Amino acid sequence: MVQKLKTIGFDADDTLWHNERFFQLTQERFADLLKDHAEKDHLEERLLEAEKRNVGHYGFGVKGFVLSMIETAIEVTDERVPASVIKELLKAGQDMLDHPMELLPHARDAVEAVAGSHHLVLITKGDLLHQERKLAQSGLGELFDGIEIVSDKQPQTYARIFGDTPGGTEGAMMVGNSMKSDVVPAIEAGAWGVHVPFHIVWGLEHADAPDAARYRELEHLGQLQALVEELG
């Protein structure tokens, strides 16, 4: 017997509020600063390689991104990158951290619609202080029964979090824009996985949709309440 849906987990970045577009804008700035040293496509490849290497050291978020840009700048200039460029990259990271939080369409209504009937948990990864700041600015914090800022999202992450919520893992649903981090591992843990696509996807977050009975996809968060009611 399938456990009745009692807990809903929400991703934050690019599910409830904008995030990846600020990384894209900063990456454009990065390419412009180093245009005399590397072609844009080559630079993007080198940066993604650096991010992949460094995520285990620095985690996810702006700080790791900035350090990866600096490392890439050193590499593509054969260690001759001007201090002025490093200064600009540090400033770009500070601008990202200071940028006002902006909710995505339907985000507030979707969370409010299920807050009264289900146990809600925000499950996000990234810089601790930055995520806490964005949550405070969002005005959504009081709607959640739990906040989990994690270093990564693996099946065991969801098993641990949902295992301590009403209904357990089988009675839980994870809603997010990342197939790799939000959907697939949640389903592997035994929960429902709901994909709400965002038009920009970070290179390290690509994954194929799972062939699973507990997988669902929505066009936008405005459709979430109907799905929750359908699943009971």
Rank of each mutant, 00 (worst) to 15 (best):
N19V: 04
K52W: 01
E39L: 10
N54W: 03
D32F: 08
R21T: 06
R21Q: 09
D41I: 06
F23A: 00
D36G: 01
E28R: 13
R21Y: 04
E20M: 02
R53H: 03
F60N: 12
H18V: 13
H18N: 10
G56L: 12
E39K: 05
H37L: 02
K35Y: 05
H37V: 00
E51D: 05
L34Y: 05
G64S: 11
T26G: 09
D32A: 12
L25P: 05
E44Q: 14
L34W: 06
D32N: 10
N54T: 10
D36A: 07
E44T: 12
L47C: 01
H37K: 01
N19F: 08
A38G: 10
N19M: 05
L43R: 02
H18Q: 14
E39T: 10
E39H: 06
H57R: 15
Q24F: 07
Q27H: 06
E51P: 06
H42Q: 14
F30H: 05
E45Y: 13
E44F: 15
A50R: 05
Y58N: 09
L43F: 05
Q24Y: 09
E39S: 09
Q24E: 11
E51V: 03
H37Y: 07
D36M: 04
L16I: 10
D41E: 14
E20D: 06
E44R: 15
R29I: 09
E51Q: 11
G61M: 08
L34H: 07
A38D: 13
E45Q: 14
D41N: 07
L47H: 01
E44M: 12
E20L: 04
E44K: 14
V62M: 09
G56N: 11
N54C: 10
K40N: 07
G64C: 10
H18T: 13
N54M: 12
E45S: 15
R46Y: 03
K63D: 11
W17Y: 02
E51R: 04
K63F: 08
E45K: 15
A50P: 03
Q24P: 01
N19A: 08
E45W: 14
A50S: 12
L25S: 06
N54S: 11
E39C: 08
L47F: 00
E51A: 02
D32L: 10
A50W: 01
L33V: 08
E45V: 14
V62L: 07
R21V: 11
H18A: 13
R53Q: 00
L48I: 13
L34I: 03
V55A: 04
K35G: 01
Y58K: 09
E20C: 01
N19C: 11
V62T: 11
D41V: 08
E28D: 15
K63P: 07
A38F: 13
W17C: 00
L25A: 12
K40E: 15
D32H: 13
G56K: 11
L47R: 00
L34K: 05
W17H: 03
H42M: 14
L34F: 05
F30K: 07
G64E: 09
R29Q: 10
F65W: 01
A31D: 14
D41Y: 06
L43E: 04
L34M: 05
R29M: 09
D36E: 07
L34R: 04
H37I: 00
N54H: 15
A31F: 08
L48T: 13
Y58P: 05
